[in-house]
Amino acid sequence: MQYWQSKFSSNLKVSQQELLEVSTEISHKYSPEVAPEIPELVLLPVDPFHLYAYWNIEKAGGQTIMDHDSLILRIYWQSDISKQFMGKKQWLDYAISSYSHRKKLQVPYENTLYSGAIGKPQAQKGFLGCVYSNLVHTPRSGLDTKKSNRREVLIENIDGQKKHRTHSNTEACFNPNSPVDAEKKVKEREGMAQLFNHETVKLPDFEFDKNASGQGIG
């Protein structure tokens, strides 16, 4: 039987068997669970057009102030581009079917600040929230919809033909010089083929979560 000496308590030795027993017992009894003491809604940026949200509102009084069916996850954005939508809604609503869950959300704008809230829609565009999220910022992508679409940068081509040139923001991320997995990126973005032929850039077609109401820019 092998014994291990404590580095801090010179009189204490623990056997290999005891190490295994402690490890097993703690794993069994203290397995982590998502049970926050206070209600929460947390957003995490995944990529330019996706967020991850997780929430737990069971202790927020969700069961008393609203029914399951009427719970809404509302995602707000704050972006220069949204100026063109002045006076229009700047959020998306997602139906919530559980008091505690996590969900990947598609969002409309890259390089944009987002926040969220869970609650119940009220009359005249009102919203009764019971929990609010942190603020997150989505990364820039090749789809820069906020600035000029032409940027002066140095891009090194393998064939060396193009030197200091003006190039489209949109090609930068997915151009043939992109890193290692460029092929994979290109393949996965085939639906954005316009990126490669310098055509006008459009926002990607949304395939919002089927529970989303899609009224954000309506």
């Binding site: 995490l44 940026p45 995944v46 990529d47 330019p48 390089n111 910022h137 989505t138 990364p139 820039r140 991320c173 992109s178 890193p179 290692v180 997995d181 994979k184 990126k185 996965e188």
Partner: peptide, 11 residues
């Protein structure tokens, strides 16, 4: 800009 070297370039 926010980025990684992973698949798709983000998280």
């Amino acid at each position: 800009s926010a980025s990684t070297w992973g698949d798709e370039g983000y998280s």
